[in-house]
Amino acid sequence: MSINKKILKKFFTYLDYDRNIEEFLSRFPEPQTRKELQKYADIISDIRNLKNVRADDKFENYALRNIYSRTRIDNTEVQKEIPKKDTLLIRLRPAYLKPLAIFISVFIFISLSFAGTIYASEKSLPGETLYPVKRTTESIQIALTPYKYENDLYLKILDSRLNEAEIILNQTDFIDTVIVEELIAEIDDTYERCLSRNYFNTNQDRQVQMRIRGIKEVFKGKCGMQKSSSPYPNQNFKDSNDTNTGKNENSSFSNSEKTQQNNKQNQNKKGQEK
């Protein structure tokens, strides 16, 4: 037989607080419901009787001693350990520290890679992939340095150009004439600029002139060897030799025109060779 849920719940609240059940049971005249409810009450009183379940007193004392000995062992172990240093980062650990650290590491990585490419580009030659990087860094340097100190910078750039040309011309392999001609035009240009602003000492001027002349002669010789079959050999270099004397003021202008002509001719020659 099943009893109404509401009645059962009410009865349970009576049982909860260990009140007198008789009063509650007297509300129900039917003997069956009384019996059922009494069963519930019996179960709960049985459960309450389980309070007699106890551990041994001996065990209780033994357990206490066991706990004390364990804690003593722990304390000795703790003393052996070196105390952790309370560094500032560990003590103050705000929420933004982690993203900040990531950001800084990424920033350092990127800047290092930039610096690496720039450092690597210092030894690059024209025609290589890193050469434009070198040129842009130079232009940035020129833009950033004040006018008073541009003196050394220009001389440095001129020196590096001359070095590049010498290295390229010393290579026994096939020389890309277009690149070398552009380089020589560049050299002439910077040389003119240096001259017009009086950056040179007397000795330096002569040395640079000698180097330029040497480069041009070598280039002439190599070009002659490579293009002996061409119909107009060495036509351009007569004029460029004239500029080397340093008397023509508009030589930079004429040089750029000549390089353009050179390029066209070279392209024609290549087409013919093919």
């Binding site: 389980l50 309070k51 379940v53 106890r54 551990a55 065990f59 357990a63 206490l64 066991n66 706990i67």
Partner: peptide, 24 residues
């Protein structure tokens, strides 16, 4: 605690061990 653990583990030795651990 011992009573609570014993009625929930149904193993006397285990109950003893667990109660010691609890108080530790």
């Amino acid at each position: 605690i011992y009573r609570f653990v014993l009625l929930n583990t149904s193993d006397r030795h285990m109950a003893e061990d667990i109660t010691v651990d609890v108080f530790y």
